[in-house]
Design a protein around this nucleic acid. Sequence first.
DNA 1: ACGGTCTTGTGAAACGAGGCACAAGGTGGC
DNA 2: GCCACCTTGTGCCTCGTTTCACAAGACCGT
Lengths: 199, 199
Amino acid sequence: MSIYLRCLDDLQREGARTVSSQALADRFHLKSAQIRKDLARFGEFGIRGIGYLVEDLRRNLTRILGLTRNRGVIIVGAGNLGMALADYGGFNREGFRIVALFDRDRRKIGTVSRGGVPVVDVRRMPAVARRENVSIAVLAVPADAAQRAFDLAARAGIKAVLNFAPARIKTRPGITIKGVDLKIQLENLSFHLARQERA
Amino acid sequence: MSIYLRCLDDLQREGARTVSSQALADRFHLKSAQIRKDLARFGEFGIRGIGYLVEDLRRNLTRILGLTRNRGVIIVGAGNLGMALADYGGFNREGFRIVALFDRDRRKIGTVSRGGVPVVDVRRMPAVARRENVSIAVLAVPADAAQRAFDLAARAGIKAVLNFAPARIKTRPGITIKGVDLKIQLENLSFHLARQERA
DNA sequence: ACGGTCTTGTGAAACGAGGCACAAGGTGGC
DNA sequence: GCCACCTTGTGCCTCGTTTCACAAGACCGT
C-alpha cells in the first residue's frame, strides 16, 4: 500500500498538480474503487469532481507511514550484503537514514562504506541505537548468527527487524519481524514457472 | 506455501518417517485444516489414519515447485549485492544452481566470487543462458540500468526475474517479474511502527 | 444561475481465503 | 473378525477483501 507514495513522487516530478483514482488505478493495474477505499481509510483527502491534490496526498501519506521524521536504521553485519544494502539507493533523501553498520570483525570496524556509512563495533550497538533513537534494524549476517544478532538488537531497543538471513528467528512480543528469504522468493518464481510449463 | 518444504527438510533430518497435518500446523501456528487444503490441491498425498509420509511428500512438493531438476539461475550485476547474493546460502544443494554473474566492468570479468561463481561478460549472457538452460535471472544492478538489464535477460530467454533494483520495470508478456524493493520493506515496517505508536 | 460532466465516498453484492465438523478410510490390539 | 482410535479429504459456514453502482459534491461553459 505504500507503493502509492512512490507513484505520487513520480507524479510530483512530472508536475501533476492533481490526480484521480482512475489514473492511479491504471498505473497499478487495479480498480479505482480499491484506491479510493484504501485512501479513505485514513480520512477524506480527495475532492469530489477534482481528484486528489498530489502535494497534499503525498504529505498525508508520508505522515501515515511514519516518515515525517527520517527514521534511523542500523544494519547488522558488514559483509557484502550489509555493504550493498547500506549503499543501496538514496534513502537518505526519502524518509530513512542509515545510521551505521555493525560488525564483530576488527578489520572492518572503523572503516566506512562507499556511501559513507561507518562500520562500528557490534558491542556499541545499544549505545548508538539509543543515542540516535533508532527503531529499525536490518539483519545481514550469516544464518547461524541471526538469532544472536536479533537478541542483541532487541536489547538495544529495536522495535522492527528486517531479516535477510535464511533462518527462522524466535521473536519476542512487541517486536515486528519481517523476513526476506531469497530462497523462498526463488521457489515462488519456480512454482509460477512450473505452472506455466504445465499449462 | 513453499515454506512447507523447508519444514519437511527439517523433519527428514530429524528422522521422522511420517507427519500429521496437526503436527505441521503446530509448527506454523496454523490450523490443521489449512495444511490439508493446501496439500490436497495438488493430489491426495496423505494416508488416512497415518498422516503424510515425509519422504514421499517432500518429493512431491519439490516436483510441484518445479525443483526436480536444479534450476539454473543467473545474476546480473557483480557489485556488492550481486556478490552477496551469489554466495548467499547453500542453494546449490537444494534446488537452485547459481550459474554465473554478469557484468560490464572489464576488471570484474574473469574473476570468481568467494563461493566460486564466475563473473562473465554481460554480452555472453544469451549464449550462457541458453547453453545452461537458465530460466531465472536476478537483477542486482543500479536503478538506472535495471530496464536495460531486464531487456537483455528477456532476449536471453529468461522467463522469470527477481528484481532488487529500486526501479519499476516495464515487463513483457510471458515473463514473471517480482520486485524486492528494500525501501518498500522499510516503509511497511515504519507503517507498522506508526500504528503501534498511535495505539 | 444552471445543466452537463467529472470524481469522490460508500452501501450492497460477489468473491475467496480460512476454520469447523464429519464421513471415509486405514491401523493396531485382542 | 471386530472394535476403538487416528488422520485425511471435503462440504458448509464465516469473515474479510475486492468489485460494482450510485448519491453527493465540485467545476465549467453558457
